[in-house]
Simulated scan of single mutants.
Amino acid sequence: MQKANGFNEFYSIYTKGGRIEYFVDKQGNPTINYPHVHIIHRGNGQVEVVASLSRGKHPYRTTLNNPSGGDVNAAIRSAASYL
């Protein structure tokens, strides 16, 4: 887990369920601030990419099944266009 400023906020986190989550800004840099792109790598090969403008406001969301790195990067760019 990479904590932000030592608080219980994170740039990235690995959960017990094998899930890896991280937040990036429009430029792809780690962030805890809104807006951000939330990327969730699930243990079953799925990757969810979500544009988060504020808590509960998500204008873009997609789930990819066993994607390549290029597929994930393309989804991140699409989500970032909503920020």
Rank of each mutant, 00 (worst) to 15 (best):
E48K: 14
D71Q: 15
Y14D: 06
N66A: 06
H58V: 07
I40G: 00
G70V: 03
G45F: 01
G17P: 00
Y34G: 06
T15S: 09
T62I: 13
N5P: 00
D71S: 09
P59Y: 07
G69M: 10
G6H: 12
N65L: 06
Y14F: 15
K26Q: 12
V24C: 05
E21S: 08
K26E: 15
N5E: 09
K16S: 13
Q46Y: 08
N29Q: 15
A80C: 12
A51D: 15
G28A: 13
A75V: 02
S81M: 06
Y82K: 08
R55N: 14
S78W: 03
K3W: 04
K57V: 14
A75S: 08
R19G: 00
N66F: 08
Q27M: 09
A80Y: 09
R61Y: 07
R77V: 14
L83T: 07
A4W: 05
F10I: 05
F7V: 13
V37M: 04
A75Q: 01
S68D: 09
F7E: 14
Y82N: 02
P30N: 05
L53F: 12
K26N: 11
H36V: 00
N65P: 01
V72H: 07
H36S: 03
E48P: 00
A79C: 14
T15V: 03
I13G: 01
S81H: 07
G69W: 11
I20N: 01
T62R: 01
N65M: 09
G6T: 12
A4V: 08
I32D: 07
N73D: 14
H41E: 07
Q27I: 11
V37I: 15
E21R: 14
Y34D: 11
V37A: 08
N29S: 15
G56M: 10
R42F: 03
P67R: 01
A51I: 07
K26G: 05
A74D: 15
I13L: 11
F23S: 01
T63E: 10
L83K: 09
G6R: 11
Q27Y: 13
P67Q: 02
Q2P: 02
A51S: 15
P59F: 10
S68H: 10
P35L: 06
I39D: 00
G69S: 08
A51K: 02
P67L: 09
H58I: 06
N5Q: 08
P30G: 02
A75D: 06
Y60F: 14
A75K: 00
N33F: 06
T31Q: 03
A4Q: 02
Y82W: 11
G6L: 10
Q2N: 13
T62E: 11
T31R: 03
I13W: 04
V37K: 01
A75H: 03
Q2E: 04
G56N: 12
P59D: 06
N29D: 13
F7N: 14
S54F: 04
I13T: 06
R61L: 08
N5V: 04
G43P: 01
I13H: 02
A51L: 10
R42S: 07
A80T: 12
T31M: 04
N44C: 13
I13R: 07
E21C: 07
